[in-house]
């Protein structure tokens, strides 16, 4: 267990941008493993960790599980390069057609439109959260009552 003084010293060093990467990793790992410390930095470090889990939608360049065989089989290398080249060609076509469509559309509309879409999705998420929270509250209030 890290002593409170040591934790304080490390946090001060962190904010002064004086910590090494190793110290920063140790600090974040320690706070992750000891949530009871309740330092105010926890939401930020938690958000950093969550962001690392961001889904990557691009799959076109991923190789299959036979990656290990690539080293041995030069024919695989060639095939893989060809696949990559085709994928890049496809990506280029998609990129060009997308950018052309975007250019055709009024950009100001596009910006507003994205705001509308993002806002609707946000309200939808919140309404779902509201339902879930209400259900939990009802469950917590009703079930203990039934047990009694």
């Amino acid at each position: 267990m890290m002593e409170a003084a040591e934790l304080k010293r490390l946090l001060e060093k962190y904010y002064a941008a004086e910590t090494t990467l190793a110290e920063e990793r140790a600090l974040k790992q320690y706070l992750e493993q000891h949530p009871a410390q309740q330092v105010s930095e926890q939401p930020f470090f938690q958000a950093v960790n969550e962001f690392k889990l961001l889904d990557t939608p691009i799959q076109e360049f991923r190789t299959s599980s036979s990656e290990s065989r690539i080293h041995r089989l030069s024919v695989w290398r060639r095939t893989l390069r060809q696949v990559a080249a085709v994928a890049i060609l496809a990506l280029t076509t998609v990129a060009i057609s997308q950018s052309y469509r975007r250019y055709e559309r009024n950009k100001a509309e596009a910006l507003l439109q994205q705001n509308v879409e993002a806002d609707l999705m946000r309200i939808s998420n919140l309404l779902n959260q509201a339902d879930a929270n209400l259900n939990n509250a009802v469950k917590n209030a009703v079930i203990p009552g039934l047990n009694n």
Binding site: L120, M121, S124, N128, D131
Partner: peptide, 21 residues
């Protein structure tokens, strides 16, 4: 602050949006 104005907005459709995406 965002606001959507209409004559009859169906809240249930908005709620279901994030489930249907």
């Amino acid at each position: 602050v965002s606001s959507f104005i209409g004559d009859q907005i169906d809240l249930e459709s908005v709620r279901a949006l994030s489930e249907n995406r």
